[in-house]
Design a protein around this nucleic acid. Structure first.
Lengths: 189, 189
DNA sequence: GCGTAAATCTTGACACTGTCAAGACATGGC
DNA sequence: GCCATGTCTTGACAGTGTCAAGATTTACGC
């Protein structure tokens, strides 16, 4: 039995295609301007198909955020295994945000998501646990609490958010990695 | 000639009333769920009145952001004059975000604003200048560049964003000022 | 193999949204 | 007193999320 992808009534993996389409759309206009109908058009299906798969708009964004947290955890883990260096994990944090803007922006916008979603909670806990391995203190729920870990997370996250919001001048925007390494080195752990 | 506020065709200070209504609405659902028609209803005017005053939805949000930056600068200036302490300015930064959530969220969401708006640019520059006085390095456009200033700003901003996004456990959320003072003291300036 | 239940996707409708043009009304200058 | 200007309303339009109902395909028990 051949799985006829892309032509018949059943799509094959529409869920996957819808998430990809959503990520593309988010990359262009941000998570808040996402339109379910535009996503449907992009994926070549009817206007109500996305809502069927994800319940509602927040459901689609929640799926994007969950996948983002998984990819995020992957990226941080890779760097930690390779270097064993806190600072490099921080740089990877920022790099992920720059290279995966759509995912990153969606991940940190809780008012657009279904907060209680178990899949999102699992992925969040995983990315927190990865951060924990790098910075050193979290409880069972993945809540970071040790002051040194909080300081590092806050510094890297704040720098990343300000950078992506266009709050820095060209001196900083041209070499964000170098600047982040510099300011990171000013933190007593 | 009596200025008949609140009853006749002309409103008196509808612009003011619309901004206040917008801030209320944003406080309830965030800037991205703001509805011009809901704002109009709240202010007791017709559905198209807000667009007349602010051009479009982004125009209203831009006005809110500009006013937010002014209030923000006021708050930081007060603390700096009173204490002359960097760390206390950082705490005031976070306090403002908590106490004026609607303003703060709108201020740092450039994709919803008219970036080129002169009034917004003026207010932004003012709040940057205030930050500069506290942390120590900015160019003529108000772009902070000195590493120590960047580090402090990033740390405080990141902590604030993570806190408001619900990313911390109860240990931190119960006494954010204390925690921020603690992690702030770990920064070599 | 077959028939029925379930899953997947479409269609059509509804209330709501931002935006625009045209009109109603009030105010200020002459 | 009259006209021009600014303020606000009204009505319309296309686009949005969401829901119910229908069409179509797959999966499963027998």
């Amino acid at each position: 039995m051949v799985h006829c992808v892309n032509e018949s009534y059943h799509h094959g993996d529409l869920r996957r295609a819808l998430i990809d389409a959503a990520v593309e759309a988010i990359a262009e206009g941000g998570p808040s301007t996402l339109s379910l109908r535009a996503v449907a058009k992009r994926a070549g299906v009817s206007h109500a198909a996305p809502a069927h798969h994800f319940g509602d708009k927040a459901g689609l964004l929640t799926a994007v955020a969950a996948e983002g947290h998984d990819r995020f955890a992957d990226a941080l883990e890779r760097v930690w295994e390779a270097t064993g260096d806190f600072a490099e994990v921080g740089v990877a944090y920022m790099r992920f945000a720059i290279d995966n803007r759509a995912y990153f922006e969606t991940m940190f916008r809780p008012e657009l998501l279904h907060e209680g979603d178990p899949e999102l909670a699992r992925a969040e806990a995983r990315s927190r646990a990865t951060l924990y391995r790098g910075t050193g203190g979290a409880d069972a729920d993945g809540h970071v609490y040790r002051a040194s870990a909080l300081a590092a997370w806050s510094l890297v996250h704040g720098f990343t958010e300000l950078l992506m919001g266009g709050n820095f001048g060209p001196e900083v925007a041209e070499d964000p990695e170098g600047v982040l390494r510099d300011i990171g080195s000013r933190l007593r752990l």
